[in-house]
């Protein structure tokens, strides 16, 4: 079986046994995810690259601690998150990028509007307007809530993984997510009324 087909956790078990070269496969698998994840916190491409490297190095250093009954992805994202939060505190910058900026930068770069490929023209416009407002509403959330939104919807993680990353319980994450969406809905409607 090639390393490409193996589960992350199986690769980590081999790394722990001393197969250093296998670690490169994990780096290839996760470097872009991790980099994007760091970029979201730091807004700085070079620093995000550095912290992505650092996260991998810390994973390697802590390889003997990895419990292969758990999943690798939340573990490495948790390490990267801690590094990013430390960096933010160290630099005393505003934590978490403005989601509006996050989305509009992406839009400007691509020249496309937010849309779903299956929509017709009128649905596309409606969806575009809805998402514009949604992005604005997201910016009204506190940074902890935005982080949960990022992990759940941008990184598409389930509550149990988010709980592992942010050091909380699965139930608490679900409750928080529910509250966040409720708050988002109120903000969204307020914005729509003003428009």
């Amino acid at each position: 079986m090639s390393s490409d087909e193996r589960l992350d956790e199986e690769l980590m078990a081999l790394v722990r046994k001393g197969d250093q070269s296998i670690f490169a496969e994990l780096v290839r698998r996760y470097q872009n995810d991790l980099f994007r994840f760091c970029l979201h916190y730091l807004k700085d491409v070079e620093r995000s690259k550095e912290l992505t490297q650092e996260a991998f190095v810390r994973v390697y250093v802590a390889r003997d601690r990895f419990d292969d009954s758990r999943r690798f992805r939340p573990w490495i994202l948790c390490i990267a998150r801690n590094l990013c939060l430390n960096e933010i505190k160290r630099k005393k910058t505003v934590p978490m990028e403005s989601l509006e900026e996050y989305a509009s930068t992406a839009r400007e770069a691509s020249g496309e509007i937010l849309r779903s490929s299956s929509d017709g023209p009128s649905e596309m416009l409606a969806a575009a307007e809805r998402r514009e407002l949604l992005v604005k509403a997201l910016d009204g959330l506190d940074s902890d809530s935005r982080e949960i939104v990022t992990l759940r919807f941008f990184e598409r993680m389930q509550a149990r993984d988010i709980a592992e990353i942010v050091g909380s319980s699965e139930g608490a994450v679900r409750t928080k997510l529910h509250r966040i969406l409720k708050s988002l809905r109120e903000k969204y409607h307020d914005l729509r009324e003003h428009v």
Binding site: V45, A106, S110, L134, T150, F153, F154
Partner: peptide, 17 residues
Amino acid sequence: LEEIGSLAARQAPAVDL
């Protein structure tokens, strides 16, 4: 929200570290 995240992810530069 997933669409917003996907679009941003597509626009992030690829890295090889």
